[in-house]
Design a protein around this nucleic acid. Structure first.
Lengths: 318, 318
DNA sequence: CCAGATTATACTCATTATGAGAATAATTGG
DNA sequence: CCAATTATTCTCATAATGAGTATAATCTGG
């Protein structure tokens, strides 16, 4: 066998248990939602087992088992090694492999425990669809400033302030919706989220608004949201979240729900149209009020025809 | 403990061994290079061990141990589970976690075995700096057509042709330098690379030009190249590969080496300048011929100031 | 059946980004 | 000084983007 598998003289090669964790996203009337278990404080997950044909199959099996939900689109997010578990007999590594899954929030006939929760329940500062949420300037800004000042003097203090300003758009900077993870990490570092002080005796400041999760699940969720917010811009993945037939406005609302920002309606239309991502069904909505909207479906064929982009998010000012 | 860690009734939770694999990239006079071991047919790798503080540390340790090379910038690429190994007593899973690392190809005082190899040795069809390589239209196109025709009739045959055309830019389509992995996978599927027929008794067609690697290392390399080609466009990672001080042309050549395409010199300059990614050192080159070029260094400060893009690759024709 | 109200869809316009090429500048080697 | 060579600066046409306005097709209440 090649050099690849040889063991170093000094090291002890140690087997690890492998955990699969899923960020399952759908967009419902409650907004952008994530599939949770255990009283909405955990993501579906479970160990990778011998019976699983592959990582993806293992993940699908666990999600279905725990939530009754079948997954469609899946992509890998990140792999990390937890710190060694303490309190167990043998030192044992745990490798966690996380995935992002996109689906529609229907057919729910499974076990209990599962629930769709808006991801803004966990990250209330991430929803800028009606402008920056008050809590950003009312709470976060001052708390982060305090944290920066704790750094004493200037090399570090300035740096902390700047990081906060970039991440949260302070001092007249633009809000960048993709920095979900950086923002969470900043709040974690500043001990403004509950999980940051969990294991230690470090004093937790008064908790920030926003639901928490077990272990590092909220961090994984942040990773998933960040990935999705980035990905919708260069790959047509939104359609994984749409029903087979939809109006432009519905599509737009979905993009807005995900990105947490509003987009400019005519420009959004132009963008989708000029890429020929959708085609008319011929039908129109028989809704309540206003001019009826044409119905469209995703042109799956584009995926075969060429390398396609998503939507560049033509943004609006508040 | 939460639902996360409970085991299913039926499954056998099975520990796995974890392998770390590195795609270490530098740009030398030989062009874009990858660090190899074992006679240039393997990537540096080794098991994740108890002594390793984290996945990244484990990776660094292995690369240093096998090649004497210290790593700087690292990012995770992908995690996959090998098929169960056959011929071993117990069924054992192997999880491989691959990383992309960027460095400069200097200080090499380490063990033997290591070597920098141009990545175009492994993927000769990927270098389009002097236009499409002859082998693309001379060899690949006809072989891929043959493979498409093997599919018999039309639903599948058409699809194969189209995939090949998109990936390799046949029929007057544009070459997309980011599709490294898709191209490799297509060639693998068509059994045009040696490793595709390794385990089976399936007849290998005459091998394509291009060096091979053990196991799936060439595939991992393709993943790394693809990631890097994509990433230089939206994050200023090229500078990880540059010496502390450099000219615009050197920077340009590096970008070209990585992307496998030529860029338009004045526009490239404009792009870098307007983003203020570099600053003059005040010095100029004392080279041989022509007007001396100003020397620049990367403005590390930009990373703190704002979210920065890379370079959008202002392309040239041929 | 008409006047708002309401939503959908189509245009227009200014500004910026991008791709391409030409022009000018500073060297070296005769 | 001239030709060759590389660096650097400009110009220009075209495309992409952000923003706003105008028109179209409905419904509701009078």
């Amino acid at each position: 066998m090649p050099a690849t598998t040889k063991k170093s003289a000094s090291g002890k090669a140690q087997d690890a248990s492998v955990d699969l964790i899923a960020v399952v996203v759908a967009v419902t009337d409650q907004g952008p939602s994530v599939l949770t278990v255990g009283g909405a404080n955990a993501l579906p997950s479970g160990p990778f087992e011998l019976g699983h044909r592959s990582l993806q199959f293992g993940l699908r099996a666990w999600v279905e088992h725990q939530t009754g939900h079948q997954l469609g689109y899946i992509e890998q997010l990140y792999t990390f090694a937890d710190r060694d578990r303490i309190g167990e007999q043998r030192q044992q590594r745990v490798i966690s492999i996380s995935y992002l899954a996109l689906t529609r929030a229907e057919h729910a006939a499974g076990p209990s425990m599962r629930a769709w929760r808006s991801w803004y329940d966990y990250f209330p500062w991430e929803d800028h669809r009606s402008g920056a949420p008050p809590m950003v300037s009312d709470i976060l800004q001052s708390r982060l400033l305090t944290w920066a000042d704790e750094a004493g003097h200037d090399p570090l203090r300035r740096e902390r302030r700047q990081r906060a300003a970039i991440a949260f758009g302070f001092d007249g900077r633009d809000w960048n919706e993709e920095l979900v993870l950086q923002r969470y990490e900043l709040l974690y570092e500043a001990a403004l989220v509950e999980e940051a002080t969990r294991g230690s005796e470090r004093s937790a400041s008064l908790p920030l608004p926003g639901a928490t999760m077990i272990a590092d699940h909220r961090r994984i969720l942040a990773t998933g949201i960040a990935r999705l917010r980035s990905k919708i811009k260069y790959r047509p993945v939104v359609f994984e979240l749409m029903p087979p037939v939809f109006t432009f406005l519905q599509l737009q609302r979905t993009v807005e729900a995900l990105s947490g920002r509003l987009v400019h309606k005519p420009n959004f239309r132009r963008l989708i149209e000029q890429q020929e991502l959708v085609e008319e069904t011929g039908e129109t909505t028989a809704d309540t009020v206003g001019r009826p909207a044409k119905l469209f479906r995703f042109r799956h064929a584009v995926l075969d025809e060429r390398v396609v982009a998503g939507t560049k998010l033509p943004l609006s000012r508040a």
